[in-house]
Design a protein around this nucleic acid. Sequence first.
RNA 1: GGAGAGAUGGCCGAGUAGGUCGAAGGCGUUCGCCUGCUAAGCGAAUGUAUGUCCUAAAAGAUGUACCGAGGGUUCGAAUCCCUCUCUCUCCGCCA
Length: 421
Amino acid sequence: MIDIKLIREQKEYVKKEMEKLFVSVPIDEIFELDEAKRKLLFDSENLRNIRKTLSKEIASEKNAETVSAKKEEVKRINELIKVQEDELGELEERLNSLMLNVPNIPDPEVPVGKDDSENIPIAYFNEKKKFEFEPKTHYDIGEKRDLIDFERGVKISGTRFYVLKKGFAKLQRALIGFMLDTHVNYHEYEEVYPPFMVNEECLTGTGQLPKFSENLYKDDDSGMWFVPTAEVPVTNMYRNEILPMNKLPIKHAAYTACFRKEQLSAGKDTKGIKRGHQFDKVELVKIVAPETAKEELSSLIADAQDILNRLDLPHRLIRICTGDLSFTASEKFDIEVYAPGINEWLEVSSCSNFGTFQARRANIKFKRDNNSKAEFVSTLNGSGLALPRVMIAVIENYQTKDGFIKVPGALKPYFGMEEFI
RNA sequence: GGAGAGAUGGCCGAGUAGGUCGAAGGCGUUCGCCUGCUAAGCGAAUGUAUGUCCUAAAAGAUGUACCGAGGGUUCGAAUCCCUCUCUCUCCGCCA
């Protein structure tokens, strides 16, 4: 949520920023609702003040007639208050629901562009590998060697589910361990293992709700939601908290499964394990003082990239333009890894700075010292990394001519004596 | 799932014949004094949200709300009533 005061005091500026996002946002309507709300609030507060005074007078008044006269007066005032506050409640509800759908304001450095075609690849890392043979796709290798079972995945769950077997199941497990270990041992993140199911406030707090409910799984019985990313439970660990400055920055690395409905047109991205309803991910989450957010974003990106560097995988960094920013982000970079079999750049991480946008929704604050007032923190996160696509990259980049996978050096400790999958 | 107890400010903990309670007291914290330094002692300050006035802004002044959440009774509720949530203890069940 953006600060309503921005709309109140700099309406035209906010409108211009929203234009950069190429979305239509009812800023004028919000502005007017806010005006009306404040006026009503002022009036009803004045009435309450009068009521309070009268009530106190009743308490000390001796004369019975005066007492009952004043009681009648307060009753009349209460009726007025009731009318005003009903209206106020309605206004606030409308205002709030509109505000919850206002996206974050982009950072000034984000290039203006209408959609993903205007994202900018800003750097390439690690050479693409040269093959003396035509590299196969991960799904060809997986099916041929019985390392992925797509049919049984569909049988037990449905479309876009698969079963990893043997070496591939182990590879995923090794990658999870490797990623967590790297972030904890070399990048100073604190590992957390959060619930995979959360209450509704969490999804509102990080901004998935109310706008994106159609992409989330929910258990109607308990009212709990399956996490679409570890960002949700981990950021919300600090919901409604005021953190002391010396706790910041908080850096967490968390493994979770992620669940998304991914209501794509049938046939898109259906091959392989690139996009499923359930996937594993190691997520990096930071809670920081606002003035450090931009440098923390840089180091977060570097931490995510480090995984790919240690695996020696070719990848590139993409700067996301305004039109392709996610709802909650003020600035975002994607990391894409190259997979030679399917010949695609695959998004394995999306690193975002949310500024105070999520902190406002989730009410996460900090105090610079004991006497200073609480301010909103900035939150950031990025995948570190998404498992299926790193799997694809490892499988396809490390394949041998005869369909085996050479274990990358960084993963050796997780494979013991095995050199090939 | 069954039975009982409870939910007050950063923490502990008063406060039920409803009124002057945003809330005693203690601890902690901050600032000042004192002291060779530290401790002790003394003094002061110390919640959040939101509105209005003032200001270039901050500061400041002032209003309102908040004693788990929501609703009700009343002129008036932390205090009474209802619903819900959570925590603790005991029993049952279970990986």
